[in-house]
Nucleic acid binder design. Structure first.
Length: 685
DNA sequence: TTCTGGACGCCA
DNA sequence: GGCGTCCAGAAG
């Protein structure tokens, strides 16, 4: 017993009468109760929400008796840590602590709801280790903020979630080699792993819903992650059709705190076993997980922009590996990462044979954009349409909607000097000048100031030209080339979900293409040089992915569906589109990454921050002997630098571990500045 | 942000 | 040699 448990002798004699008497009697009893530890498993292992890398480990606390029932593994608690009250999660209850010193008691059990499932706690550790980040940062992505009122709502009475009653239709998967086998394996309760190359025109939301249905029928759950909200809406609708209502739930960040937490709880409590959502849904605590799905894994929306920057595909793969459940990485395109999964044998290909692919794909034409090939029609010339593109668009418009994909949104999104062609910049803030609309003056894209009486600082010229034309301007020009045809624009802040089957021109930026009822009659891909020349490692892979996704919305060549790419026929990405051979392109891409030493063939870490901080980190890190460091190179203003470290894939774990340990040293030392560590970042200039 | 312990300095 | 103060480092 500590001294606090004894009656203070001076209190009874302090002359305060009644009040003092009450205190002397009541206080010792209260103190005894509150200090007594729980009768069993009196120690709680707690992960405290701390931003410091060197404190990324559990701490033990004493569970007071009155918290014995509410302090369950996975619940939120409040603990005293270094003089502050902080949030934390209980990992486990233990009979004793390995800590030598005295344990502090838990301050409070925030709620007895075990929001953090044991496998999600473990997944957070795996993800943090893979990305050289902290557990707490990952858990912040995985567990939505608590909403007390929602938590108190009476839970819907669902003892065991019923599997959908409709039989699973596996027939559509027969178009793919190993497709039917994949679904049957899920149905049997096995855990197949596949990279699926979806056919052009495929109703992929329906196919994914069928895979989910097969998994649910085996008594297990499924997590389906897609890039954006339009994809979520399509998959949501397909799941309702295939599974029936109430067997799946949509989890996205934009639901709002209450609804988000409500749905999260319904999953965590086991009432729903199929989750559809964007990247954060990769962490959904689905019970008895049988299948994880990542659709269109090349879309960079799958990359989380918050530390430690995990990629949804990698989270799902770690999860599938850890749990031994099924995995499906699918898309019209195949990423180099997908090709690697196939080459190591970790996953198997689910692809259609060449005959089926040829039958289902639209006919693809290439049109050069040289002056000689431009259409003679002056309106078509104005919109930079080669003769063939103009003819195919005109023919397509007789049969239905025609899609026009242009890389940039806006009107004239970039301006340059007419004479010397150097980019036009804002005299005030050096931002890029652009023309936001037909009737509007050029203005700065950053500060919005109109560029009145601009003159080129390079050559003194005073007129501007637009080397890049945006979607709205293209739509305007096309409207002139094809009078009497309605023109729609989808992109930027105004994205259309669907268009009907009537003839129309649909100008869209990549990823914003509406789905056409019955498929597009034709599609044109303009300004291909602009996408292909982007100074990004993935520019070519990304361009092909965008083409394949758009071309997949076009009718098959048997239905006279046609695609025209305006560009150079010799470019490998254009060849891959013509042949519709995403797998071969991905294999080639992977081989090139091997040769050049880029992910996923190797593991890369980028270190961004102040020069001093970055060099301290890299000097402290005990990097694997195979590590190769490149840089540091200056980045942007001030004294910011980027350093790149490269290791073979097999040393990726050691690389992340070394960087994490070095971050821990820096945080323990309270070294100034911060260093942003990214493992295999999506953007690699 | 608080606590602890080790280093160091001052005084006996 | 003993005790007080200061600072760094850890944090249950």
């Amino acid at each position: 017993m500590s001294s606090d448990d004894r009656v203070q002798p001076d209190q009874a004699a302090d002359g305060q009468g009644q009040l003092a008497l009450v205190r002397t009697r009541v206080r010792p009893i209260r103190t005894v109760t509150s200090r007594a530890p729980a009768p069993e498993l009196p120690v709680a292992q707690v992960m405290v929400d701390l931003p410091l890398a060197h404190l990324d480990r559990p701490f033990d606390y004493l569970v007071p008796e009155r918290m014995h029932d509410s302090c369950v593994p996975g619940c939120r608690v409040r603990v005293r840590f270094a003089g502050q009250d902080l949030d934390g999660f209980v990992l486990e209850r233990l009979s004793q602590s390995s800590h030598e010193g005295r344990l502090s008691p838990l301050r409070r059990v925030v709620s007895a709801e075990p929001v953090l499932a044991p496998d999600i706690a473990r997944l957070a550790r795996l993800v943090a280790d893979r990305y050289a980040g902290t557990w707490a940062d990952v858990v912040r992505l995985a567990v939505p903020p608590r909403h007390a009122r929602v938590e108190a709502e009476p839970a819907k009475q669902v003892a065991t979630p019923s599997a959908p009653t409709q039989p699973v239709d596996v027939a559509p998967w027969s178009e793919y080699q190993a497709g039917r086998a994949f679904l049957n394996a899920l149905y049997r309760g096995d855990s197949p792993r596949a990279v699926w190359t979806a056919l052009p025109g495929e109703n992929w939301p329906r196919r994914l819903a069928e895979a989910a249905a097969a998994t649910l029928a085996s008594g297990r759950g499924a997590v389906l992650v897609v890039p954006d909200h339009r994809d979520v809406a399509r998959l949501d609708a397909a799941c309702t059709e295939v599974l029936g209502a109430g067997h799946h739930v949509v989890l996205t960040a934009e639901l709002g705190p209450a609804e988000r937490y409500r749905r999260f709880l319904s999953v965590r409590r086991g009432a729903v076993r199929c989750v559809v959502g964007t990247r954060a849904a990769a962490f959904a605590p689905v019970h008895d997980l049988g299948l994880v799905v990542c659709w269109d894994d090349g879309d960079d929306l799958h990359a989380e922009p918050r530390a430690p920057y995990p990629h949804a595909r990698e989270v799902l793969l770690l999860r599938a590996h850890d749990r031994g459940c099924g995995a499906l990485i699918g898309g019209h395109a195949v990423t180099a990462e997908g090709a690697l999964l196939l080459s190591t044998g970790w996953a198997h290909p689910v692809v259609a044979d060449r005959t089926t692919v040829r039958r289902r794909a639209p006919r693809v034409w290439v049109a050069g954009d040289s002056v000689a090939e431009l259409a003679r029609d002056p309106a078509a010339r104005a919109v930079r349409l080669p003769h063939r593109a103009f003819e195919i668009a005109r023919a397509g418009l007789a049969r239905g909607p025609v899609l026009v994909q242009v890389p940039r949104a806006g009107y004239r999104p970039a301006l340059a000097c007419q004479d010397c062609r150097s980019p036009a910049r804002c005299p005030e803030c050096s931002g890029p000048l652009q023309q936001p609309g037909a009737a509007e003056q050029p203005a700065c894209g950053w500060c919005g100031r109109p560029a009145v009486s601009w003159s080129c600082p390079n050559c003194g010229g005073s007129t501007m030209r637009a080397p890049v034309v945006g979607a709205r301007r293209t739509a305007e020009e096309l409207g002139r080339a094809f009078p009497r045809v309605p023109v729609y624009v989808s992109g930027g802040s105004r994205v259309l979900d669907t268009v009907g089957s009537a003839p129309a021109l649909v100008v869209a930026t990549p990823g914003a293409e509406p789905v056409a009822d019955g498929g597009y009659a034709a599609a044109l891909f303009l300004d291909t040089w602009l996408s292909l020349a982007r100074p990004d490692l993935r520019a070519v892979e990304e361009t092909l992915r965008r083409w394949l996704n758009a071309a997949a919305l076009v009718r098959s060549h048997e239905d006279d569906g046609a695609v025209v790419v305006v560009g150079e026929a010799g470019v490998p990405a254009i060849q891959a589109l013509i042949r519709w051979s995403p797998s071969a392109f991905a294999e080639r891409e992977l081989a090139e990454r091997r040769a050049a030493g880029f992910p996923p063939a190797v593991r890369i870490a980028t270190l961004d921050g102040g020069r001093e901080a970055v060099s301290e980190l890299v000097d402290t890190a005990r990097l694997p002997s195979t590590a190769e460091t490149l840089g540091p190179v200056p980045r942007g203003e001030e004294d910011e630098v980027r350093l790149v470290i490269r290791t073979p894939r097999r040393d990726g774990g050691r690389l992340a571990e070394a960087l994490k340990a070095a971050q821990a040293v820096r945080s323990a030392r309270k070294s100034p500045g911060t260093v942003r560590v990214q493992i295999d970042p999506v953007m690699l200039g």
